[in-house]
Design a protein around this nucleic acid. Structure first.
Length: 278
DNA sequence: ATGGTTGAGCGTCAA
């Protein structure tokens, strides 16, 4: 093959993820997200809408007409909205046997072969970082352990992307104060170790940190409980995009849409986006 | 040590 020739068509693929904290409440913000990031795929968490009440006109209205969703009343809920056709992944586990709508996966129909995309909403884990005293923290650890096992047990990992609100900030500079958050759920050593092991043992790369050095602060979430989120800047990086190692060379750029935290009726999370050429 | 705010949906529970 001639130097520089392409074996197959190249596709610019942008995948975004956002904890929207109620799809029905914030569906009007999605057009602004699409205008800012121009994603081909948008993964949402905390949609908080049962499937029968899912706003089915929204995906086409924002130019992402193919969609998959798994929702329930009041809590949790995930959705994938796509410009590109996909096949649903039907055989994913029922995580921790709870049927609580924290995961949906699809196989994207792209020219180089399908890409499997997993959208997760990992349990937040409550307030007390002790699995014996706090069943929500025990659930969080069990969920991450199950996900770790699931991906590590695959015969091989290729053309696979994991995104979502993983509710863990793994690096010291993924939180505003490493020292002060060591005993705060989301940054305890038992959680960050579990997340690191899931990612590394399964063979994923942190696609956002691929571009941003570990000594640089990076947040995707700022609590509602601060008078001025930008001034206090007590953020955490809870939202992630991972790609299997065969896709690492396709990574082009990352964007954290920090401006979204100032939108009217903002979510406490902001969108995260990665661009690849596949 | 505590409180601060938001969403779902009407009790509080979850984050």
């Amino acid at each position: 093959m001639a130097r520089g020739a392409r074996a197959r068509p190249q596709l610019r693929l942008r995948i975004a993820t956002w904890n929207i904290n109620s799809l029905r409440l914030r569906q009007d913000r999605l057009a602004a997200l699409v205008a800012a990031l121009e994603p081909d795929i948008l993964c949402l968490q905390e949609t908080k809408v049962p499937d029968e009440l899912f706003p089915e006109k929204v995906p086409a209205a924002i130019g992402l007409p193919y969609f998959a969703r798994r929702g329930m009343k009041s809590y949790n809920g995930v959705a994938i909205l796509s410009r590109i056709p996909f096949e649903p992944v039907a055989d994913s586990p029922d995580w921790c046997g709870k049927g609580d709508c924290r995961h949906v996966a699809v196989r994207l129909d792209v020219p180089g072969g399908p890409i499997e995309l997993h959208n997760f909403y990992v349990p937040a884990g409550g307030d007390i970082p002790d699995p014996d005293a706090n069943p929500k923290f025990a659930h969080k650890l069990a969920f991450v352990a199950e996900a770790h096992e699931h991906f590590s047990n695959l015969p091989s990992l290729a053309r696979t992307v994991v995104v979502g609100d993983l509710n863990i900030a793994p690096l010291e500079n993924d939180v505003w104060s490493h020292r002060q958050l060591l005993d705060v759920v989301s940054h305890t050593p038992v959680e960050t170790k579990a997340l690191d092991e899931w990612r590394d043992d399964a063979g994923f790369t942190d696609a956002v940190r691929h571009f941003v050095p570990a000594d640089e602060k990076l947040f995707t979430w700022w609590s509602y409980r601060n008078r001025d989120w930008r001034l206090s800047d007590r953020g955490r990086r809870l939202d992630h995009i991972w790609v299997s190692e065969d896709l690492t060379g396709t990574l082009e750029r990352q964007t954290i849409l920090k401006d979204a935290r100032d939108w009217e009726l903002a979510s406490d999370h902001v969108p995260v986006c990665v661009e690849m050429t596949v």
